[in-house]
Design a protein around this nucleic acid. Sequence first.
RNA 1: UGCUCGGUAGCUCAGUGGCAGAGCAGGUGACUGUUAAUCACUUGGUCGUAGGUUCGACCCCUACCCGAGCAGCCA
Length: 465
Amino acid sequence: MQRTLVKAAHNSSNPMDQILLQGWVRTKRDAKKFSFIELNDGSSLKGLQIIVDASLADYAQVARAQTGASVEVNGKLVASQGGGQKWEVVATSFQVVGEAESDYPLQKKGHSLEFLREIAHLRPRSNLFGAVFRVRSRLAYAIHQFFQERKFCYVHTPLITASDCEGAGEMFRVSTLDPKKPPLNPSGEVDYAQDFFEKSTYLTVSGQLEGEIFASALSNIYTFGPTFRAENSNTSRHAAEFWMIEPEVAFCNLQGNMDLAEEFVKYLVRDVKEHCADDLEFFGKFVDKELLTNLDLVLEKPFVRCSYTEAISIIEQSGKKWEKPVKWGDNLQSEHERYLTEEHFKCPVTIHDYPRSLKPFYMRVNEGESPDRETVAAMDLLVPGIGEIIGGSQREERLEVLRENMANHDLNEKDYWWYVDLRRYGSVPHSGFGLGFERMLMFVTGVANIRDVIPFARTPGNAEF
RNA sequence: UGCUCGGUAGCUCAGUGGCAGAGCAGGUGACUGUUAAUCACUUGGUCGUAGGUUCGACCCCUACCCGAGCAGCCA
């Protein structure tokens, strides 16, 4: 007898004489002559109601089938006599596979997200987290589908890297040296020449530089993998380990880059809406009442595009009182980004052409601007509720300008010799961006904390599971 | 890392300078085609930790630990 998933049972168009279900008990309601058991196997938000009649030989098993227990049920799929569901299962046999002890922490009532984080080994069995991780899986699939449909090549960039990718914050060191007595060089510092890779190595903060190499050969590529930042960030939208999607496109300028980003985000929203409708409806009910309306809005309207310079004057003319006032040349603060996307435009906004001094060495310097207001072809996509979800740019393809940038940023050309080489051999204009996978997932689910869209979140002081 | 708020039963929370509380979960029983079922009874506590003030501290003070929100950094 083959197992039927709860989702398939719900979708059945006919009653079934025989059905085998396996899963976990969500709740049990005992009557005198029978018991109702709600069984969930993670295949869908909705559980399936099982009726176990007291006359059944296995009825004694029901007493052991407490919330959280795993069970195996054979029975008939029949039209439900009660309201609330189309189908239910009348058991012909009922076995408890694994009992749940009475201190099973997941109850029928609501739990705080903070508490559920502490029981990350059990929270996937809750409605909310089951839904989150089903959507996470679909979103990952949709990402590959989007790029594969467009003939982008999936590139696996290294997780261990020697390049201290500029501007991306603190890195986790990768070393096999004995931390108690590491070898020292003559000047008394740790001698990483004796380390595993014979140089300092770190977990990657971005696959972009390697992505550019492959775009300079295969034209359209994307990466999709884990990324690590050792920043001591304690916010609802930062994690030490997260997944990032980084497309890189040869013969593409900033306009094309912004077009791709917008098409991409809309594609993902549309795909999840289509394939995770039940889960999204749940988020709309219990997480964010506006979610479905907001997602529709994303699909309907073109994203606003606004230059950094325009953004600054909008903020200046807003008449609002800012904690930190901005002038041209300053970084936009969270409060400003929130104002732009949530209040002023009320939709996703792409801010482009930022001051050169604010951005990393690899971004392309715009031509024909006054020397005190130089900009680079950078873009950030901001969405309501989360802020920056995409950061990208056209890359500097001109050898001399790149060298000048590196000098301005105190970078040693020798450390990036292969990156510079790309500008010496068949250099092309090219562009790319990074999309934070978890931030996108927060956006489509309405879940407000990044720790709640990662199965086992790594944040400062937290790596329990 | 800075600022702010919080930590009381398995969970969600109330509480007052003077006997430690409720709902849910667990247990027992009743009842009912139930839907977070219902009703009665019932088990369950180092009040984050360590000091201090006080006749007396869950409550007031100090330090520390942990969590959350916001900010910075970014995706």
